[in-house]
Structure formats: C-alpha cells, structure tokens
Nucleic acid binder design. Sequence first.
DNA 1: ACGCGCTCTAAGCGCTTGCTCAGCCTCGGG
DNA 2: CCCGAGGCTGAGCAAGCGCTTAGAGCGCGT
Lengths: 206, 206
Amino acid sequence: MGADQRPTEEWADVTPDAARRLLTAAVQAFAERGYHATTTRDIAGRAGMSPAALYIHFRTKEELLYRISGVGHRLALGILRDARDGAGTPAERLADAVRRFVRWHAEHHTTARVVQYELGALGEEHHAEIVALRRETDAAVREIIEDGVAAGEFAVDDVRGTALAVLSLCVDVARWFTADGRRTPDEVGDLYAGLVLRMVGRPHGI
Amino acid sequence: MGADQRPTEEWADVTPDAARRLLTAAVQAFAERGYHATTTRDIAGRAGMSPAALYIHFRTKEELLYRISGVGHRLALGILRDARDGAGTPAERLADAVRRFVRWHAEHHTTARVVQYELGALGEEHHAEIVALRRETDAAVREIIEDGVAAGEFAVDDVRGTALAVLSLCVDVARWFTADGRRTPDEVGDLYAGLVLRMVGRPHGI
DNA sequence: ACGCGCTCTAAGCGCTTGCTCAGCCTCGGG
DNA sequence: CCCGAGGCTGAGCAAGCGCTTAGAGCGCGT
C-alpha cells in the first residue's frame, strides 16, 4: 500500500537526523490533533527526545509548523507547475495536474492536512509568505484552464471560480482520505481527473 | 449583503438569552481561532460576561462545540433531505441540493467552519453521534445521484466516489469563503450547481 | 591528553488554561 | 416586607503549557 502513515520522503534532505525526526513527529502530531492541541512534549516524545531538545533545532513550536508548511506548499506548487509546463493538450495537462496533485494529497495526507488546514496558526509574517505561495498555486491551475479555453477545448464561463473549485476539490482530499479507506491514492487521482475534465466541459476522458 | 459575520437565525430558539449569546460568541471564536486556541475567557468576554457564567449554562467548553455541531449538522442534513425529497427530475433536485447547501455554507461560513472542521475536538461519544449524522448527509447526496443514474439522466461510473466528491466540494466552501470576497453566496451556489451537473455527466444547465 | 563545541537532559520558571466556589445581586410569591 | 431561588461575579485552584537554563556526555582536531 503506497499510503504511508508516517511521512518520510519529503523530509529526506533535512539534517541533522534529530531535526528530521522532530519534523516528522510534528507532522504526525499536528495532523492527528491539530497544531494548538499538540504539545511540545508530545512532539519531543514521539521523536524519542526530551522536550528541551526541540529548542536546539527550532526556535519555537511555530517554526516547526512554518517549516512543514513551507516544504509542503513548495512541493504542491512544484507538482502543479510541472503539469502546467508539461507537454500535451490543455486537457491532458489539466488531468495530469489533478491526478498528481490528488495523489500527493492522498499519499501524504498527514503532511497535506497540516499544510492545508493549519496555516491559520502561523505567525503573521510566515502566514503572509505561505499565502503568497498559495496564490501561485491558484495561478498555475487557472493558467491551464485559460489555455484550454483559448484553445477551444474547454467551455468555462467563470475561469477564476472554476479554478478555485478545482483546487478546493483536490485539497479537500487531505481532509477525508485515510489509508485504510476503500480507495488507493491512484484510484482517487483517476476519479478526480475525470470529474475535473467534466467540470471544464470536456466530457470524454483524456 | 446576505453574508453575515455574526451567526444569528440558527440560534433563535435557544433560551435563555445568555446561553444564546454564549453560543454565538463561541461560534465566532471557534471559527476565527479554532476550538483549541479559543479560551473560555474569550467566549465569555465576547458574550459580555465573566468566565464563570459559562458554566451555569454549559457543563464544559466541549459541550458548547457539541451543541454547535449538532445544530449545524442537523440543519445541513435537513437542507439535503428537503432537496432529495423535493419535486423535479434528479438533475433539478441535485442542482437544488447543491445550490442550497453551498449557499448555506457561504452565508453561515462561521458556523459551517466550526461544524465541518472542528469535529475532531469533540469527545468520543459526541463525535460518534455527529459522525452518524454525517453518514446520513452522505447518503442523501448519494441517493439523488442514484436516482439520476437509474433514470438515465446521469452518466456516473463510481456513484459513491462522485457523491463523496460533490459533498467535499460543497463543504470546502466554508473554508475559503469570506463575506468580503468577490462572490455572493448566491453566485457561488449557482456556479457550483452548474459544475456538479457537469460532474454527473449532464452538461447543459437544469 | 585535552579542551572545545555540539547535542541533549533534568529541572523548573512564569504564565495560562479549564473549571470551581462562596457569596452578591435581582426578582417574584406570600 | 421578607425570603429563597436562580443568574452572575471575583477570586482563585490544580494542572498543563511553551520555553529556559545549568550542566552532563561525547566526538574530534590538535
């Protein structure tokens, strides 16, 4: 099963080892209980360390959230930009974007849940920085849809609204997806790619 | 503008007056900061009372969330069931369900945000009760789609998955909608009704 | 062999949290 | 006019919070 409870690969390049363990522990804890309900003692405990060890690698608990949010948002943005700049017709690129974006949100639903639903807990400056990343995410989807409309492939009246809805639909996967559910990340990705193609007025597959 | 910051009408029949003020104060606070980041002092303060007054009308802070969640979920379920049992073709009923459900989530986005995104903070028994309501919500949408498929109006392979996606799309409105955004609740409702009809393979309006 | 720097811990500080309680109001019935 | 009941407050308790500090352990260059 590709749906891992423990987040791993996205933190592979974090050093030192203890910092990575703390980060992944924080991801799990934040995803399970939410940022505010998670204590620094819980995070340190999951990483097999004392509470004080956290403050050698991170200045505050909020910095943990910021780092997690930054990595996650940059990864998500990368996925959408790759799809946008890829080869193929707009419909192919949109389907590709949705499939990969959804698959990531399902496979890494712990990380994704933190990334998508805990940004209100960020400090003011960090929040502004992350919001800027989200605007770029929005733009990437919108641009694919604009390409499709310009090419006459899509029939969309409200491009902004449709892009918002598409992103909203995909993001919400992180909320309801669980590894022990009846669908694999691949299946959800395929299902959603098909639904989104219909939403832009292109009824038959890729 | 129909989009009110302050939640009102859904609590009209709560007595005594002080209990209602505390409930609406809690809705605002939970929506803004989240359940765990909200203090009982904050709630009581917004209601113009001392912290101790809260415990005359509610046994715990969690009971406030439970009451809010119960009212909200029952209201949402009522909306969908009304649409499901209404007159008209499956397409008309689906569009009606989405339009009204989305409009409610936009208009009452403070209440809806608490209802949809804070249920993890509920105690075990209360959580189970609310989850049962959500399953019925799910079923209502699924049944409309099943009707449409049976009538040959919809072309849907995965009814369960599509129903899940439709509900997910609508629910997520509570996350991003703000009263000062560029769209009214009515506009979002209409947009989403159109998108959902396309998702079930019925491309042209009602 | 030795000191330096880095990592980590035990203990705990100051503060806030959810919640309690003794007592003060206000108001209706006798 | 008094009394008791219920709504409400000021003060505060025990527990838990984020975070700090003093110092121990360890690896490494010299």
